[in-house]
Design a protein around this nucleic acid. Structure first.
Lengths: 177, 177
DNA sequence: TAGACGTAGA
DNA sequence: TCTACGTCTA
């Protein structure tokens, strides 16, 4: 059976608790928490509209800071000069995952959030210094456009957690030197 | 526990039989059959020399043909114009995986071979059309240099199976249209 | 920091 | 065909 063919769904995944940790992206893929091997935004189609099901925040794009444990500012995808042709940064478009996040805001549907925690204090880990933590359900509150580090327009999405957590993300992060 | 830290070893992996199939590369990584997520050649150091432990033949480089089920002509790695800077193909060097395969030939140590079978007849599979089959142990018989499709010198390694198989690879491949 | 026989989806 | 918050090794 191909786990990747598990139907996509909004909301919680049975058997996955808030705070559950994963070592690799593919672990979340095969259990259906985030059915994308590399992409940061997962989404589905429902009633002819795209809706976001889950996002992975690994810190690659969100260098913004200014958010706490229950808030998250997530950058849209696309226009990345590192991967696009001729290294020309382009303005992000409101399509695919970006459109799905906007629709989720309007439809008020929950989005699963997975946070990549770097430098987690753990004697087990050696080289790989990222652990993915399921951070529960969030609502998309609003979105806007901003200039990215390369001068192109990127989307920013503000998400707010809708649950209680018995842990603190900042305690899971190692003190920065 | 980080499975990727499983010690590397030459020869068979306990619990893995010839003919066993895998859907994704990471499945072979976590059981120690081929401890590389992306690289085609896995190797270890023993007595100050690099020795090849396993290779994955997915058909990306070996368009040579001219080999049967018990023979395999495997291309070395490096010099790929698609990934190197400015798309300039370069001659492959006898280092890393290429050197390991040469050393395995001289030391007559076995190399695990995994074959990527495309277009496997299966009603379960839909989009992903590659299945990895553990094809048992091989010896490296000889190697040489040849001009690759981009004009650069690439290494070619001739490997010969040292076991019996109760299946035929060509029967696992779908008829080509 | 860059390279490697990765993967799925648009 | 190309993109995508991949993941490891050298």
């Amino acid at each position: 059976k191909r786990w990747i063919n598990t139907p996509k769904r909004l909301g919680s995944i049975p058997g996955v608790e808030v705070g559950d940790k994963f070592q690799w992206r593919f672990e979340m893929t095969i259990i259906g928490l985030h059915q994308q091997f590399n992409n940061g935004i997962d989404y589905m189609e429902e009633g002819g509209k795209l809706l976001a099901t889950s996002i992975v925040e690994s810190g690659r794009y969100t260098n913004d800071g200014g958010y706490c444990d229950h808030l998250l500012i997530y950058s849209g995808h696309g226009g990345n000069p590192k991967v696009s042709k001729d290294a020309v940064p382009e303005d992000q478009k409101l399509i695919q995952g970006n459109l799905a996040l906007k629709n989720s805001m309007e439809a008020k549907t929950p989005v699963r959030v997975i946070r990549g925690i770097k430098n987690l204090v753990s004697s087990v880990m050696k080289k790989n210094n990222v652990v993915y933590v399921y951070d529960g359900l969030y609502f998309v509150e609003r979105y806007w456009q901003a200039r990215g580090p390369f001068g192109n327009l990127v989307f920013k999405f503000l998400l707010r957690s809708l649950g209680q957590k018995d842990y603190r993300l900042d305690e899971m992060r190692e003190e920065q030197s």
